[in-house]
Design a protein around this nucleic acid. Structure first.
Lengths: 225, 225
DNA sequence: CCCGGGCGTTAAGGTTCCGTCAAGGCCCGG
DNA sequence: CCGGGCCTTGACGGAACCTTAACGCCCGGG
């Protein structure tokens, strides 16, 4: 289910979007100003953000920069008619699309679909196999080579998913922490040690001498298929 | 240089876009109908397409489908005001963005930049190969020609990365020390001797007679591919 | 011939980083 | 209200890494 975060200070718009999006099977959360909007992005990890530029507490482009600082979640900007320069500024700040109020709900929905479609990287290969287990990213499932399936907690899964998606590449601790726990946790390398140990215990044939989930001291971790 | 294909049947718009885009250092090609437009896409492989929906020979969504059938080049659609349903259809057919005529040139340029930015997520392809090993800067990985991979510490990586990025060029000791250890260490050439020795031991087939990591006495070091 | 600067090499200390374990808190379902 | 996953947090031994110093080599100049 696609998660949408709506950041707007007008209750009527918030309500209209919530009703329309929920009816289309979107998972909607809302925020009424820039500060709580940025917090909500870090906490909820929406798949797409609808952002009104006329917020009471922050400039719209600053909100965009705050989000773009650490993630590329698509942003659709909403704003009053006739603000040509604002429109350009928002797009250059990193917004993906721009809709002028008043807008037709059909158009917004279409742009939403377009943004989500672009963001989903590709119908790529969501299955990775090693000699000891198989990771199916689409089914969110890990099966050992003897047929038994592995139970992973949500956090363990997020971590494994990032490592597998970057198969072979080194992923820095900062990136892992940012993508799993949010930008505020970039220094809590403690978490990584705990969860990597758990993943190894569940996946590695010899957890004390990892073959797939490798540590690069001082840099990060690497999944080696 | 970014290549833009403009598909439109109105000579005035074609001319206006050609002038404005050329002035911004875009490489512009044009087509006046859907058929020649599709041919131009296949022939020129533009980085982005600007497509007018009101073409004489084909329906706009068909052109989009024709392009989307085999490539994901970003498409920005142009159309007359008030065609809400057409707009939705175009986006759902796979267009990336939609601009209503009459449009401001600034807005179109901003949307163009946004579309190009989204489409190029890979900034560079930093892989350098020699007869004895391959350096993959993105994956932070060095593989010897016999298949074994080399373990490098963070400092060793920083050093090697600078040298490889300046492949063939001489890099002064000051620059290396400044970029790896910080400006306060510009005279500690000791560090360089120690770490260059380690890199040679790990990379060179004959560490005592370096072939890739060369010393320029009194000046600095050079990576020779 | 001797001497000194620049470089390569090695090894010892000290520091940071990692794996591991376990206790405590939170949330949810029974 | 109680129990069980799950997530956070802290502590500790050991490994990896960085710094630093010492020594030998080569080469050009005095």
């Amino acid at each position: 289910m696609t998660r949408v975060l709506v950041v707007d200070d007008e209750p009527s718009i918030l309500r209209a979007l919530r009703i329309n999006l929920s009816a289309r099977e979107y998972d909607v959360s809302t925020a009424a100003d820039g500060t709580s909007g940025l917090a909500a992005v870090a906490r909820d990890r929406p798949d797409v953000i609808i952002l009104d530029l006329g917020l009471p507490d922050m400039d719209g482009t600053d909100v965009i920069h705050g989000v773009r600082g650490w993630t590329s979640i698509p942003i659709i900007v909403l704003s009053a008619w006739g603000q040509e320069s604002q429109k350009v500024a928002a797009l250059d700040a990193g917004a993906d699309d721009y809709v002028t109020k008043p807008f037709g709900m059909d158009e917004l929905l279409a742009r939403l679909r377009a943004a989500v479609r672009r963001a989903s990287p590709a119908p790529d290969e969501p299955v990775v196999t090693t000699a000891d287990f198989t990771v199916d990213l689409a089914a969110k499932e890990v099966i050992r080579s003897d047929g038994s399936d592995v139970r992973l907690t949500p956090t363990e899964w997020q971590l494994l998913e990032i490592l597998v998606r970057n198969s072979g590449r080194l992923v820095t601790q900062r990136q892992l922490l940012r993508e799993v726990w949010g930008p505020a946790y970039e220094t809590e390398s403690n978490y990584l040690r705990v969860y990597l140990a758990q993943l190894r215990r569940k996946l590695e044939p010899e957890p004390s001498q990892p073959r797939y989930l490798l540590t690069e001291s001082g840099m990060g971790y690497r999944f080696k298929p």
